[in-house]
């Protein structure tokens, strides 16, 4: 049985899809089979971030409505052959998602993969609830910024109330992933500090992803940052987070960016 993980945040634009792609690839690179499911019906982007946009034939809604089999809709990654993507529908209405349909798809995926990663849409609507419904683990992506922290608090409340686990009286394992962190601004007092966010949200920290140009660069190329520039600071942060998800105990450090010149040279070669 797979471990089902939701990547969620409440607020949009904090890095859910980037994190889904990077963690999915990092877990696949550790040898496990991974299926990533895009729940953002109507505004899908995981296909684009993964560079699979031109290979989408069927989607999650097609599978739910029985127009395609799961195996037909899953897209195998070009770089990692144990990494798969189930895209969201871009044309359908988001009401086409049903609780029973989502349950069926997640159950089928979990008997075939080691990890099922659900990329949640922003907001606290039906889509976000469907994405978290079957989760064993939740990664709450937060930027060091008060509106993001507020929305994360709301999402943590939903995770404790609306998930299957919560309804059974159990709880989802919740982890905080702080993204777009700028150490210089935090130490000069311009940005919320990690300890403050941790104290406010009181869930354990999975990792701190520093603000980096490499993230945009990777998405331009349609490649997870852990694959596109594996030595970059954000890739190191995601790799460490993936190892923690696998139960490894590693000291939490905030990876530093290499000098820009070196980054350009090596990054350029990697692409």
């Amino acid at each position: 049985m797979a471990r089902v993980m939701v990547v969620t945040s409440g607020k949009g634009g904090v890095g859910k899809t980037t994190s889904t792609a990077a963690l999915g690839a990092a877990l696949a690179q550790s040898g496990q089979t991974v299926a990533m499911v895009d729940f953002d019906v109507g505004l899908r982007n995981l296909d684009l971030v993964m560079g699979a946009e031109r290979r989408v034939v069927f989607d999650l809604i097609n599978v739910i409505q029985g127009q395609a089999k799961l195996a037909q809709a899953l897209i195998r990654d070009k770089r990692l052959d144990n990494l798969f993507l189930l895209p969201a529908s871009q044309t359908r209405d988001k009401d086409a998602l049903t609780a029973a349909g989502v349950t069926k798809v997640i159950h089928e995926l979990s008997s075939n993969f080691d990890w099922v990663i659900c990329d949640s849409p922003a907001g606290i609507g039906k889509g976000a609830v469907f994405a978290m419904q079957h989760a064993d683990i939740a990664v709450v992506v937060t930027n060091p910024e008060i509106s993001s922290v507020r929305d994360s608090d709301r999402i943590i409340g939903l995770l404790d109330a609306k998930t299957e686990k919560a309804k059974k009286g159990q709880s989802v394992e919740k982890y905080l992933l702080i993204s777009r962190y700028d150490e210089a601004r935090a130490s000069s007092g311009d940005m919320l500090e990690i300890d403050d966010i941790l104290e406010i949200l009181s869930i354990p920290l999975l990792g701190v992803v520093p603000e980096s140009q490499e993230v945009l660069r990777a998405s331009n190329f349609g490649s997870p940052v852990t694959v596109c520039s594996p030595k970059s600071a954000p890739a190191q942060a995601y790799n460490a987070a993936a190892r923690r998800l696998n139960g490894e105990v590693i000291e939490l450090t905030i990876p530093k960016e290499r000098t820009r010149l070196l980054g350009r040279i090596f990054g350029g070669r990697a692409a």
Partner: peptide
């Protein structure tokens, strides 16, 4: 300190 102001407000 802006981060202290932010921290107090969000709390």
């Amino acid at each position: 300190n802006p981060s202290d102001v932010a921290k107090d407000r969000i709390r």
